[in-house]
Design a protein around this nucleic acid. Structure first.
Length: 504
RNA sequence: GGUCCGUUCAUCUAAGGGUUAGGAUUCAAGAUUUUCAUUCUUGCCAUAGGGGUUCGAAUCCCCUACGGACUACCA
């Protein structure tokens, strides 16, 4: 087998969609698994859809995710340039070659002509297709006398170059995921390969680039399956059949609710990111959320994405990227589309969060504290993180679980107060205050022993003591062990907080 | 409309003709926790429908239904 070389080839028309990220990930895993190369190529043949910043966004997104390329626009390589607009001069000769060999022809039909034709057909409830059955009545180098064609070409009349599909031919695409797909050429239209603006279309540029870059496997989304026969025919037309890459068309990522392909709007509508990084549309200023900014760990996103449409066939679900590389294989990719599951995405992030060290989390949490204008001993923050990490899915949720470690509660959960703050509670709290005040060593053990002794002495249920005390210290009935909290806050703070709730 | 692809619990999926159809997430219950969460245990929940082939079908074939993609001088 030749060396594995795969590419991810996005269009810089906006932020990278999470489905595209998955496609890139599968390419990456496949390349690593087989010791091959992973290439980042930018397909910007449509100048009208170019969005500034999109290319940089794509590169930054992969850097964040830890998906590394061996060659590409950002790092160069033996097949440079890797941006199709920079490769523009080389495509023309390939189009000419196709024409010379009778695989393509010039077409002079204007967009208006084509539009009119389509309308005409539509009126008869038919669909117009530029193909073997209709090209004879259109304005092209097949119907015009050679001289006129030359005149038009020389005179600067706009034209496109179309692929000339042979009539009634079965075209077979061998897909690594779907098996054999056969289509009759009569169903395909004479696709434009070269546009009137001098740029190739995706189809031409793609095949030329994949060939010259010696791509061995084309792993891309299922939306490309319908044009795969054209691509196969192009390889044939160029005489590159023997080195044609193998195809693998990935199932689509679907909306979590209802049906259809996951789209940009779904994210905002359903509250989850569709993009790896936050993106502000330069034209509309509209901001779309990103996984990074939402607090997802890149490893969690990679793990989750890897399992959306592929699985290793074992019960394990948590894998780091090296394990994924080790286990990955194209034949375990499923054929049907996968719906994004927000809850499971949260779970993945939770698993990666609790696997992190308290210190790592403390670094992240310290940033949040800083934003709130709070500071604390780093050792203390580490301890807090250790206490609350298994209760959250995101670092950003830690504040909600741990604010009382840094500031006294500003309010008390009313519902809990109503239920738990009884008539005799103030008296109990006063007792508790003086008991705690009497402790010289404010250790967890001492606090525990003192409160238990008090409970027995007075014949009070622990709940009557501990829950009000918890409300005083925390603000509600949640949080880690109360003795631990009290110890960490320190005697003065504990006494102050009891005072505060008593005088409220 | 046409072409192509697809269809196992709510969701991601396992089971490459023979299992009580397995796991994970979600949800629910119980245990633990003086709180909340964690954790543990348990439970609920699926082969789209109909025909074949076969001793035997989630698995192979056909039809139907449903879903999706594509159908641009966009990728």
């Amino acid at each position: 087998m030749n060396k594995v070389r795969v590419r991810f080839a996005p269009s810089p028309t906006g932020p990278l969609h999470i489905g595209g990220v998955r496609t890139a990930l599968y390419n990456y895993l496949f390349a690593r698994k087989h010791g091959g190369d992973m290439i980042l190529r930018i397909e910007d043949t449509d100048q009208t859809r170019f969005v500034p910043g999109a290319e940089a966004y794509i590169i930054e997104a992969f850097a964040w995710l830890g998906i590394k390329f061996d060659e590409g626009v950002h790092i160069g390589g033996p097949c440079a340039p890797y941006r199709q607009s920079d490769r523009k001069p080389m495509y023309r000769e390939y189009a000419d070659r196709l024409i010379a060999d009778g695989w393509a022809y010039y077409a002079f039909d204007t967009p208006e002509d084509l539009d009119a034709k389509r309308k005409e057909y539509e009126a008869e409830k038919k669909t117009f297709q530029y193909d073997a059955s209709t090209r004879g009545m259109m304005c092209n180098s097949l119907t015009l006398p050679d001289m006129e064609v030359q005149q038009r070409l020389n005179g600067g009349t706009p034209y496109v170059i179309r692929f000339k599909f042979p009539a009634n031919t079965e075209i077979r695409v061998d897909d690594l995921i779907r098996g054999e797909v056969t289509v009759n050429s009569d169903l395909l239209d004479d696709k434009v390969l070269f546009k009137s603006d001098g740029m190739p279309t995706y189809h031409l540029a793609n095949i030329v680039d994949d060939h010259t870059m010696e791509i061995s496997h084309v792993i891309r989304g299922e939306e490309w399956l319908p044009s795969a026969p054209l691509h196969v025919m192009l390889y044939k037309a160029f005489g590159w059949e023997s080195t044609m890459p193998q195809f693998a068309h990935l199932p689509l990522l679907l909306k979590p609710d209802g049906n259809g392909k996951l789209s940009k709007r779904d994210g905002d509508r359903l509250g989850f990111p569709v993009f790896p990084l936050q993106w502000a549309d330069p034209a509309t200023k509209e901001v779309s959320s990103g996984y990074r900014e939402s607090g997802y760990f890149p490893e969690a996103v990679v793990n989750m994405l890897a399992l959306l449409g592929w699985n290793p066939g074992i019960d394990q679900e948590l894998f780091n990227i090296d394990e994924l590389v080790e286990l990955f294989s194209l034949d375990r990719i499923s054929k049907s589309g996968a719906k994004f599951d927000l809850k499971k995405a949260h779970w993945f992030n939770h698993e990666y969060l609790i696997a992190k060290s308290d210190e790592e989390l403390a670094k992240l949490f310290a940033e949040i504290l800083q934003e709130k204008g709070l500071s604390a001993d780093f050792g203390y923050i580490i301890e807090v993180c250790g206490l609350v990490k298994d209760r959250v899915n995101f670092v950003s949720e830690m504040w909600g679980q741990a604010s009382f470690f840094f500031v006294a509660p500003q309010s008390y959960d009313e519902e809990v107060m109503k239920k738990r703050w009884k008539e005799n509670t103030p008296d109990i709290m006063r007792d508790v205050k003086s008991i705690l005040n009497g402790l010289t060593d404010f250790s967890e053990q001492n606090i525990h022993d003192a409160l238990h002794a008090y409970s027995e002495e007075k014949g009070l249920g622990l709940g009557q003591i501990m829950i009000p005390l918890r409300i005083a210290l925390v603000g509600g009935t949640y949080g880690p062990d109360l003795q631990v909290i009290a110890h960490m806050l320190g005697k003065n703070e504990v006494l102050n907080r009891i005072d505060k709730i008593l005088t409220k």
